[in-house]
Design a binder for these strands. Structure first.
Length: 548
RNA sequence: GCCCCCAUCGUCUAGAGGCCUAGGACAUCGGCUUUUCAAGCCGGCGACAGGGGUUCGAAUCCCCUUGGGGGCGCCA
């Protein structure tokens, strides 16, 4: 029996997004489960869409998730090259076969002509437009003349005029009628193969046995099956995965980020110039096109613009989640459950290794799923709680490495590990900074949250401020600046004054952290240190409106 | 518009004719705990889209309706 081979074949248009990650994961899991090979192939045949170094980002994201491929870029393998752009001779050779056998032909229509035909068909009340096979195919001489004249030349495949049945592993048998099929383009005017054609040549040559891909590819399958037949290759088993949506029901796509920012721009009523300035781009045409919704802005520009407008970009790419502070194993676990379920019991926490053992195509569902970030957050919280100290430190350092310098940058491992401990119950690594960041900011850069100042220091005739005044000498005189001792001293002070500990700890917290959020008060003061604690109390008191 | 796919709590799902008074998880609500933010613990609310069949019996099978999604590119 021949061994199982799966593949993930993304086009390098940017970071790996959630949908792609799940497709990659499922293919990886299937290969692992069945003891086969998982290959990675880069589909970079669209010269207009390729983005510089996007494949490197893709590889990094895949690796970060732990989905190591057995064959592909950087890994090599017996069926390379693994970039479609380097396989052109293979495609040409196969087209030759089709052309010689009369199973494909040249077509010379321009895009405008096709568009006109499309319009005419609709005007004539036909149901949808389908390319009609010409009665006469251009001769070699005509093709040459067309090329010389700069007219487009493509190659179309002669689609057999019959129904096709896709034996889908998830959906069952799906019949697509002959009237839905037409002679599709297999070689573009620029000489590169189209997806529907290259994917067949590559999967066949790479001996792929199982293709797990998004359901948006279902209707492509008949054409591909026909190509397998034409070449005399055995088709792989197909399984079309349900699609992943956002919670609001919109498709989870990279465009989502542009949309969010575009809407913010609209609300802010910014003109093109201002947008270009904020985004740091000097291409006026690009900005205009982007505002119309015709194109996407480069990642960095979009992020810059989003920051300037103070809008949160939705997490779409795996890299976004990494930057938000999730552990890769959390994403893997969560994504695995989008469309697949173990069945039987009630378990839903799995490591990658466990998934490799449990996964099966039979247990993939048919219904589309929504990506619930709340549940992801809950998974993250639980995973962080269960993770070892080493794993958490590693995760925090990774998070720091993909984010801009912040208050936690540059802290040593011992201190970072300490912070993690103090943040028990945190949901993502970003929470560690949220909770402890202020303690490591230079004193002069510390910001006081107006609401916290008002509620904790000023309220009740400045009761909080009064506590701070009294605490100042008390703290200044302490010889033992350790968390247990500080807690004890504050507890005693609160008792003497007949106050709840909150009435004492909160004012201190606001003075020292600028907000009502920080680790346990004793620990907080230790992290800030005696000198800076006293200085910050002084500064907080000084910044208050005249005491009443 | 045409073709195809799908349909269980708000969300992810378990369920493969009687084990279902429909189970779990997240969210939500209430309580406990409490020096903040979280976390944690206990409890509550909450679904078989609708209508026809088939059957002794249907969330499970069939049909229709409705709703959602995908496709109809020289994108992948």
């Amino acid at each position: 029996m021949e061994s199982v081979r799966t593949r993930f074949a993304p086009s390098p248009t940017g970071y790996l997004h959630v949908g792609g990650a799940r497709t990659a994961l499922f293919n990886y899991l299937l290969a692992r489960r069945l003891g086969g090979k998982f290959a990675l192939r880069i589909e970079d045949t669209d010269q207009t869409r390729n983005i510089e170094a996007a494949d490197a980002k893709l590889l990094e994201d895949l690796r970060w998730l732990g989905l190591q491929w057995d064959e592909g870029p950087q890994a090599g393998g017996p069926f390379g090259p693994y970039y479609q752009s380097q396989r052109r001779d293979l495609y040409e050779e196969h087209v030759r076969r089709l052309l010689d056998a009369g199973q494909a032909y040249y077509a010379l229509e321009t895009r405008e002509e096709l568009e006109a035909m499309r319009k005419a068909a609709i005007a004539a009340g036909e149901k949808g437009f389908r390319y009609r096979r010409p009665t006469h195919f251009p001769s070699d001489a005509e093709v040459r003349r067309a090329r010389d004249a700069g007219r487009p030349v493509v190659v179309r495949f002669k689609m057999p005029e019959r129904d096709f049945v896709v034996h889908d592993q998830i959906l069952g048998d799906v019949t697509i009628g002959a009237q839905e099929l037409s002679d599709f383009v297999i070689v573009k005017n620029d000489g590169w193969p189209t997806y529907n054609y290259a994917v067949v040549v590559d999967d066949a040559l790479m001996q792929v046995t199982h293709v797990l891909r998004g359901q948006e590819h279902l209707m492509n399958t008949p054409g591909q099956l026909a190509l397998y037949e034409a070449f005399g290759y055995a088709p792989p088993a197909f399984a079309h995965l349900p699609i992943i949506f956002n919670m609001n029901g919109t498709k989870m796509s990279k465009r989502e980020k542009d949309k969010v920012v575009r809407d913010a721009v609209k609300v802010a009523q910014l003109d093109d110039e201002r947008v270009a300035e904020l985004a740091g781009v000097d291409d006026a045409a690009l900005v205009a096109a982007w505002r119309r919704g015709d194109t996407q802005l480069p990642g960095p520009a979009l992020e810059k613009l989003a920051r300037a407008l103070a809008v949160h970009l939705p997490e779409i790419d795996i890299h976004d989640f990494r930057k938000s502070g999730y552990l890769p194993e959390v994403l893997v676990n969560f994504i695995a459950l989008l469309g697949w379920s173990p069945g039987g019991g009630e378990r839903e926490r799995f490591t990658l290794a466990e998934l490799c053992r449990e996964f099966s195509v039979e247990r993939i569902g048919k219904t589309n799923a929504r990506f619930d970030r709340e549940k992801l957050l809950a998974f993250s919280t639980a995973a962080l709680e269960a993770a070892s100290a080493e794993r958490k430190l590693e995760g925090l350092r990774d998070w720091l490495s993909v984010n801009e310098r912040g208050p936690l940058s540059g802290l040593d491992d011992a201190l970072l590990a300490r912070l993690i401990e103090l943040c028990r119950g945190f949901r993502t690594f970003a929470d560690v900074e949220y909770k402890c960041g202020a303690l490591f900011v230079p004193d002069e850069a510390l910001r006081y949250d107006p609401k916290a100042v008002k509620d904790v220091l000023l309220k009740g005739d400045g009761a909080g401020a009064k506590v701070l005044q009294e605490l100042k000498p008390l703290l200044a005189g302490l010889a033992d600046w350790t968390a247990p001792h500080l807690d004890e001293v504050l507890r005693r002070y609160a008792e003497e004054r007949g106050l709840g500990l909150g009435k004492v700890a909160q004012p201190l917290r606001v003075a020292v952290a600028g907000t009502t959020i920080s680790p346990q008060i004793g620990e907080t003061l230790v992290l800030v240190g005696r000198e800076r604690t006293l200085a910050r109390i002084e500064r907080a008191l000084g910044a208050l409106p005249a005491a009443t």
